[in-house]
Simulated assay, not measured.
Amino acid sequence: MPVSAEDPYESWNRKVFTFNDTIDRWVLRPVAKGYRTVTPDIVDRGVSNFFNNLSEIRNFTNSLLQLKGESAVVAFGRFTFNTVFGLGGIFDVANAFDLPERPEDFGQTLATWGVDSGPYLMLPLLGPSTPRNFGGMLTDGFMLPSAWNTVDSPEWYYLRALQIVDKRADLIPAESFISGDQYTFMRNAFLQRREFLINDGKIKDDPFASDDDELMLEDF
């Protein structure tokens, strides 16, 4: 198998992918399916909205770091409207004010500053990434201001577990779009999604894309 510049560690990445897939198949996915079965749609949406609302602090901070004034205003407006009028973010009322979410993270900020992505990496338990994306994720999680900092243990762990299960449950419908080699498909989807976010919705030519790929970027 030829080694590509974008995925020079493919042999190792595939081993990690197999490990992650085994954990997902036997633990996380069954829990997520049970969650979807017993949780009413309105409650499921409320849980997702709540966690999305917390991420607006990250969006706001990184928008400022990227000098995106309009995106910062949108993130601040979304957090304010959804927290005050959406019962702490359970309801996404900001959309009614024509304020759709604009995801921004520190990985995108590093890209704006000219930091190279580095090779594709499959991380144990964390999934698809790159050195730039992983560094950005660590910064977002431990250094930037976050509403998570106001949550004391052990509630913090319960909420994190709920967030992981809720996110995995939301991805179950997207599984129907996976075709061919699962590792390759997930790699393509991740890299295209990151490019989509970094370039604010503008996609360049993807070196991994094939004519048969049909990726739902909003679902990954």
Rank of each mutant, 00 (worst) to 15 (best):
S179E: 06
S153K: 03
L197Q: 05
Q192Y: 13
G114R: 01
I178W: 00
Q163Y: 10
V165A: 00
S153T: 14
L197A: 06
E155M: 01
P154I: 09
A161D: 02
R132L: 03
L197V: 15
M143P: 11
T109I: 02
I172H: 01
F196G: 10
R168P: 12
K202H: 14
F91C: 04
P173F: 05
S146E: 10
S176D: 12
F106W: 09
Y158Q: 12
T130C: 00
G107P: 06
Q163E: 11
Q108Y: 07
F85W: 07
R168W: 02
L171P: 13
F177Q: 11
S146P: 11
D105N: 04
T109V: 04
G89E: 07
S179K: 01
D206C: 08
R160P: 11
G136Y: 01
R194M: 02
W148Y: 03
I164Y: 09
A96H: 03
P103T: 15
D205C: 04
N149W: 09
D116W: 04
F142A: 15
Q108K: 06
D116K: 04
A189H: 07
D98T: 15
E195S: 11
A111W: 08
D98F: 11
Q108C: 08
G127E: 05
S117N: 04
G201P: 06
R194K: 11
P100L: 01
L123M: 09
F106P: 14
L110H: 00
K202S: 09
P128R: 02
P100G: 07
S176F: 08
L123E: 10
L197D: 12
G136D: 04
V165S: 08
I198Q: 01
G135H: 03
D181H: 05
R132A: 09
T109D: 00
R193Q: 12
V84I: 15
E101K: 10
D205W: 02
D140R: 03
G118T: 13
F134D: 12
G86T: 06
P103I: 10
R193I: 13
G201F: 02
P124C: 02
F85M: 07
P128Q: 07
G180E: 07
W156M: 11
L144N: 06
P145F: 03
F177S: 13
I178D: 02
W113C: 08
G107Y: 05
M122E: 08
R102F: 02
P154Q: 00
I203G: 02
Q163H: 12
G136E: 01
A111F: 02
N188H: 04
Q108T: 15
T150L: 06
W156T: 15
P128M: 00
P131R: 03
F134E: 14
S153P: 12
G127H: 05
D170E: 04
K167Y: 14
Y157D: 13
F97T: 05
D152N: 03
N133V: 15
G141V: 14
I198H: 02
R132C: 13
D92S: 01
G201Q: 03
R168M: 02
G89C: 05
L197I: 14
D181P: 06
P173T: 14
W148D: 09
Q182K: 14
A111C: 09
G201Y: 01
L144F: 05
K204R: 09
L99N: 08
V93N: 00
G135N: 04
V84E: 10
F106I: 15
T139N: 09
G201L: 05
Q108L: 03
R102P: 11
D116E: 09
N133I: 13
G201A: 09
